[in-house]
Design a protein around this nucleic acid. Structure first.
Lengths: 115, 115
DNA sequence: TAAGATGTTCGATAGTTCTCGAACGATTCA
DNA sequence: TGAATCGTTCGAGAACTATCGAACATCTTA
């Protein structure tokens, strides 16, 4: 119903974006959503309690990385590529490319947190 | 004397890099060092207690963003551009460019932290 | 050797963040 | 209406981070 709280394009801050993506779980989420075009929280392929996942989605949303559209009972997420590319040209691609270059497969079978 | 603890090129992790740069103070530091080529902790232009500054330099060092060479009593920092570009091509430039695009001038007159 | 300069390390405090179960809300479907 | 689905929010505990003064270490120079 009420639109998820997210910044306008001009309010997206570099710090928040970098911070949001500094978590392996979240960068995987963005990577998956980006590859799939759109994705519900459910089919993100990352196994973890709902509340934890919801937390990560919230961070991504509030940082301006994703937007969420509600469709029935599902929340469909998409990467705000246009906004991000407008605000920080090349940044998102560089990060996603780096994530792939790092060789770590997107996480699917549970958590693997380290920092 | 003892070399500052820092990761080898292949051990630089995306998460650490993004996390390190998710702090406005640290991204300014990297920006300044990058512009200047090299810089001691002293002349970084950011006013803040020595211990705080040292903490930020440590984070940058441990994430692989900078390396520190000791010369007399001064610790001279430089950005590990070659290593970073080899490991994550285009990433550092994209971030520095984004930092400039954000319009926030590098911090000089004291702290201005917000996140 | 003593004093000064430059940074690091330690210890403490305050604020954040992550994680996860439990409760809640909204929507769909029988 | 009742049950199921899909997510969010709440609350609490553990872990981490930033900040900063004080103490320490190292090198230089008087």
């Amino acid at each position: 119903m009420r639109a998820a709280k997210q910044p306008f394009r001009d309010q997206i801050s570099l710090s928040s974006v970098l911070y949001a993506l500094s978590d392996p779980v979240r960068v995987d989420l963005v990577r998956n959503i980006s590859d799939a075009g759109e994705q519900s929280c459910n089919e993100c392929g990352i196994e973890m309690p709902k509340s934890s996942l919801s937390h990560h989605f919230k961070v991504l949303r509030e940082s301006g990385l994703i937007s969420t559209r509600i469709e029935g009972t599902r929340h469909i997420n998409s990467v705000r590529s246009a906004d991000l590319n407008a605000r920080f040209p090349g940044l998102l691609n560089a990060i996603l490319k780096a994530a792939r270059a790092e060789g770590r497969e997107p996480q699917i079978f549970g958590v693997q947190k380290m920092r």
